[in-house]
Design a protein around this nucleic acid. Structure first.
Ligand code: SF4
Ligand code: SF4
Lengths: 135, 135
DNA sequence: CTATTATAGACTCACATTATCTCTAATAGG
DNA sequence: CCTATTAGAGATAATGTGAGTCTATAATAG
């Protein structure tokens, strides 16, 4: 039950794009430079964010990535689900009892967990991140 | 970010042991008979529950598994952590900023998630499960 | 037209989960 | 003491997924 390394790359990148969003597009090579990850691999992850509508991309010279229009609304949940997809963490009732009390209980707790992540905006975290050395 | 199939086996088994806990020990072959899982593999999972102190085992004829003394207190969290271990779902700050705001936020939400699972007692779920056909 | 940049596909590699088989240890009951 | 029964430990294999590379293609600015 772990979030993938790709999700970490995506979140870190979102933080960067948010902090420097006034400076226009940023290329994947610059974004990858801040982390230990290859450009081609990070590119695949960012494409997921594009398809989820969290960022926009422009090919060609001086192109790159930038945040979508109302980027202030993007939450941790948006980014995590864009990369990880939407499968529930416990879903083993296919050919069993679909009203299994165990599954119901775990998914109820998961729902609250996701809702809490849905209240955490990247923009707010980026504001806080300005005060720590690493960013 | 998924709970393993082993965790499902463990939870299902705990439900069975709780429902039939008045009948003494239950062998792993009986417990495996209720699920599509081999006896040797389920045995490995149950050994984790034994080491976590959630159930007790007795080898030899008429042996098997039964719940621990105050079995009424066992929660979903106890079982999940016994099988899955205790790693946080997001932990990518080893050589980075240990006070990373993203990590802090996700782990805060995770803490609430685990605490909620810690309030869900297997005994209560077993009581509800008596009213559904599958169990 | 050319350099630059994102995107897509095929592919490999590493690792954890899942699972089986076999052997050993402990226990009940005769 | 003997034997059937049962849990536990170890080695090993199969499977699947995450992580990562390489190459080719498409789009854009200048
Ligand atoms: S009822 Fe729930 S725990 Fe039991 S086998 Fe079905 S899905 Fe698993
Ligand atoms: S501060 Fe470190 S751990 Fe946090 S997102 Fe950035 S690179 Fe990852």
């Amino acid at each position: 039950m772990k979030l993938s390394k790709s999700t970490h790359y995506a979140l870190h990148t979102m933080l960067h794009l948010t902090i420097s969003h006034a400076e226009g597009h940023t290329s994947v090579s610059k974004l990858a430079g801040h982390q230990q990850v290859s450009t081609t691999y990070l590119s695949k992850i960012l494409t997921k964010l594009v398809k989820a509508g969290l960022i926009v991309s422009v090919p060609g010279a001086n192109g790159g990535y930038k945040l979508k229009a109302n980027w202030q609304e993007t939450t941790l949940l948006d980014v995590i689900q864009a990369v990880e997809g939407l499968p529930p963490i416990f879903d083993y009732c296919e050919d069993h009892n679909p009203s299994c009390i165990i599954q119901q209980s775990i998914q109820k707790a998961e729902k609250n967990f996701l809702e809490e992540l849905g209240t955490m905006k990247i923009a707010d975290l980026a504001e806080d991140a300005r005060n720590v050395p690493h960013h």
